[in-house]
Structures are given as C-alpha cells and as structure tokens.
Design a protein around this nucleic acid. Structure first.
Lengths: 136, 136
DNA sequence: ATCCGTGCAAAGAATTTGCATACAT
DNA sequence: ATGTATGCAAATTCTTTGCACGGAT
C-alpha cells in the first residue's frame, strides 16, 4: 500500500471523531477541504484500511456499514431509540468463544458482537417525558 | 397477521432444513411446487415472520441475510473456509450484556453474536490435504 | 518505468415498494 | 365488506467495478 493523500485524509477524519461515521458521512466530512475526492475512493480506501486492521468496520443490523478509527479493544452498541453507535470499553468481557466450542461441529476462533440498548441521552429524555406527564 | 398460504409454505420450508437459507434460496426451494410465488413475497413474509419472532434472521458479515426456522436458543457460526452457517447449541454462554453494562453511556439489553471458525468438514479436508503433502 | 491510486459513471447485489388484483375473515 | 396478501416490475439503498488518467516510488 503506497502512500496516498486521500487515504491519509480519510484516516485522519475517522480518527478525529467518535461518531462511527458511514462512508457517505465521511465523504461529506472531508469533501469541503478535498473537493476533488470521490465517494468511490472513500469506499475503496476504507476497505483497504479495514483489511490492514487500521480501522474497524461495524456491520450494523440495518443501514450502511460504520467505521471506527479506534482499533483498541472495545465493543459497540446501537441505541434502539436514536440509532447512534456508541463505544463500550471493558476488561471483563467473558470468553464466549470458549463457551461456543463445546461441540465439535465447528471450531470457533472469533466472534462478532454488537450490543443493543438505550443510550444515556435517550434515557434522560425518556425520564423528562415521564416527569412532564406525557403518554409513553 | 391473517392466514396466508404463501407464508405457511415459506415457514414450512424453513423449518424443514438446517441450512439457514437466504430469501433467494428459499424461493428456489419452494418455487417448483408453488410456481406462482414471487421473490418479493418471500422477502415480505420472511420479514413478518421474523418480526413476530417465528423465525430468526442471521445477519451475515457479507452477502444476503440468512434465516433459521429454529427459534430455540442457540447461536450461529460461519465457516471461514466454506461459508456455511452452522448452529451452536450450548447452555454455558456467559452473560456478555452484564459485562458490557459496566459503564453508563449505554444500558445494554441484548446482544447479537456471530461466531467464526472452521467447520468439521473443512477441518477434515484440511487434514487430508496435509497427509497428501500438498502445500498449505 | 512501473505499479498503485483516483474520479467518474455505470454496474451490481440485496431488498423494498407502488399498484392493481386476489384472498381471508 | 374490509383489510391484508400477492405478483409484477420498478425503485431504492449501499457498494463495487471498468476504464483512462494522474501520482508515488
């Protein structure tokens, strides 16, 4: 992988945010300062960066893939209310692969986990709603 | 959800196999005995069945979604060699949601897990290859 | 000089949707 | 009678690809 300006820009943009942007969102983020760039290049470079382990691909249940410039070990959860993808950092994740290896039909070596829940923001606005007496 | 012949056929076909077919595969399976059926109906009915918890949707990393007529608690793993999706039954799966709930950024309530590994068939053919002295 | 990267537009894969008709209750 | 289901084709969404050109080593 030889040097490329576009890839550097894309990687920089991805590392500068914690919002787990999609390819299109990243494209919109960098387009103003890089008017010549094309969406196809964003897709291509994201694929390469992911293949080289330099970024993470978050494969959501619905909608386009999201990307994360933080490759340190962590997990992701999608808020069922607002749809945002948030990071989860923990050292206590149990070894689910070991648990999955009880039978010999398949020898498991890795797992993809995607959590779902309600984020802090949405919990707080739900509480506000309850206090205001609005119907649930 | 009123009765529908098509949905009954689709559900029956899905329950009759352990192959985790895609919508297209299911369509091919049932088309011979149901010549009039359309692929759009298969998609629509699968969505409804999944929404009602009557079937499981397996959201693979790449390629089309797969479906499972067995709704008893179990997990899925994709073989990295042949691509097949196999079932994993275990009672010992640790509570990863609890582990993910250490921080308060999001309150996790569920998790989607998809394992990856090498299935028995592929492990055996790899061993055969090694015995025959072919290059790895 | 050679290989890789890029822009553009077009193609592709998977899934959904509008609409008129047919079916279930 | 009413609401849901279906077939068909077209539309949508997300992503990849072919090709000619520009940039990196």
């Amino acid at each position: 992988m030889i040097y490329s300006r576009q890839r550097e820009v894309i990687l920089g943009a991805l590392r500068s945010t914690r919002s787990h942007p999609t390819a299109e969102e990243l494209y919109s983020m960098i387009k103003p300062e890089n008017p010549g760039i094309s969406l196809a290049t964003v897709y291509r470079d994201l694929n390469q960066l992911a293949a080289h382990g330099m970024i993470l691909r978050i494969h959501a249940k619905s909608g386009p893939d999201r990307f994360d410039g933080n490759t340190s070990e962590h997990y992701h959860a999608v808020c069922s209310e607002c749809g945002r993808t948030v990071d989860i950092f923990t050292d206590d994740m149990p070894d689910v692969c070991a648990a999955a290896n009880g039978q010999d039909e398949i020898q498991v070596s890795s797992v993809l986990m995607l959590f779902a829940g309600v984020c802090k923001q949405c919990r707080e606005s739900q509480q506000d709603t309850i206090l205001k007496g609005e119907p649930s």
